[in-house]
Design a protein around this nucleic acid. Structure first.
Lengths: 230, 230
DNA sequence: GATATGGAAATAATCGATTATTTCTTGGTA
DNA sequence: TACCAAGAAATAATCGATTATTTCCATATC
């Protein structure tokens, strides 16, 4: 019996599960390059694990769209493309706005509180381009904020879909927009969306989220086109 | 070199990949009961495979929503519930209709042809309750038809999401509606949707697909409530 | 020169055995 | 009886070694 332990770490215990998180982070952060072949032997050494948990972790990442697989040819990091980024942006608008609308209709006080908590945490994250750990912290808080917004909808499958889209989107931002300074507008947008969401100002909130996703998506597309287009 | 082989089977070669398909089919067909724990040792024997490909196949199925996993407690078949079925129906309406609308806007002649081909194949499937293989064939054709409808949208991520929802939905139908006779109305609905889709009669098509999903969903809900409710 | 062929090296896939963790059972105690 | 602890059995997780497949390269052939 180790109930305290369980409560304290509450996290992934097995190698395969830890590795799943580490690999996802490595891909989303751009540490593992888009489109790159994943050599099992080298990955095994790099992450200091054995083959079985490595394969299991990679298998789990396939349907998140971050890893591709082909029989007898192994695993590779999913490539990036303009069309993929366009689709992700389009789907985020469709799915997240739908989920947010549901949240405002079904969310209770706990949901409202979670949104405000996530907003506060996000606002308190100081991004210091010199310290990568602060960037990672901001990314985590940012993802949590967007998930918190839609978590009132009580649709676990939908939330999971949105989480997948957020991961895919974050990879583009972290890989191709790394140096960007904190873009003042974004912070203000988050605050306004959160405020109006808990106030159940449905149409205005949805409109603003859609605009927010669109604006950040277009910004990303511009940068990406500059890097892989010409 | 085996180019002919590759062309002929064009399919899954490794044990892990074949097993992924077999396990998905076993779950969707109800052969593996919803909510049931998956004992690795017994599964290993039942499917006559070794542990590594078994774990890898199960890992791949997690994010399709058919398999759940917990560290050190292993894998289990995802449970069914009224709320889960309600969510799936809701999401299918939202996303399949969205994808169909896009298809009608972006689909080319190949898309139209695929739709008509899938419709024809589906119509030619005679369901004989005495012959399970005919039921399986119908299921495959039915899934293919719904995928063909939305495949014109050119959004691979969205198509994959819809495929996941279709799998989840099919499990409910195959598990809780097995004995149902061919329900005449459904066949007519498919035909009408396909015809109007290729005619780009956007609003009428979307309306009918939404109704189709809603009707089959409600029917399922009724049956399911009768079996697990009281 | 382009293309095919054979074999070696690299890599992926699988297996059987071992280790770690959980679950079950039994016996003790308040 | 209800609760707890210790040991045993069952099960999950991991490892190292083996097998199968692909990729690469040198050579031969047209």
């Amino acid at each position: 019996m180790k109930p305290l332990m369980t409560l304290v770490d509450a996290g992934k215990i097995t190698i395969a599960s830890q590795l799943t998180d580490r690999l996802r982070e490595a891909i989303v952060s751009g540490q593992l390059a888009a489109g790159a072949k994943i050599n099992l032997e080298r990955a095994r050494e790099q992450f200091a694990v054995s083959l079985s948990p490595l394969r299991e972790a990679l298998a789990r990442l396939i349907s998140g769209g971050l890893v591709q697989f082909e029989d007898n040819r192994g695993y590779r990091v999913a490539p990036v493309s303009l069309s993929n980024l366009r689709e992700i942006t389009r789907l985020r608008k469709e799915f997240e706005v739908f989920a947010l609308r549901e949240s405002m209709s079904a969310g209770d006080i706990d949901w409202e509180s979670d949104v405000m908590r996530a907003l506060h945490k996000l606002n308190r994250c100081a991004r210091d381009a010199a310290k990568p750990s602060t960037l990672e912290q901001w990314e985590a808080s940012h993802r949590e904020f967007h998930i918190a917004l839609i978590s009132g909808c009580r649709m676990p499958v939908l939330i999971e879909f949105c989480r997948v889209l957020l991961n895919l989107n974050d990879r583009y931002r972290r890989t191709f927009l790394r140096a960007t300074s904190g873009d003042r507008k974004v912070g203000a947008e988050h605050g306004e969306i959160a405020q109006r969401a808990v106030a159940r100002d449905v149409e205005a909130t949805c409109e603003r989220l859609e605009l927010h996703i669109d604006r950040t998506g277009s910004n990303l597309l511009r940068h990406l086109a500059g890097k892989i287009g010409p």
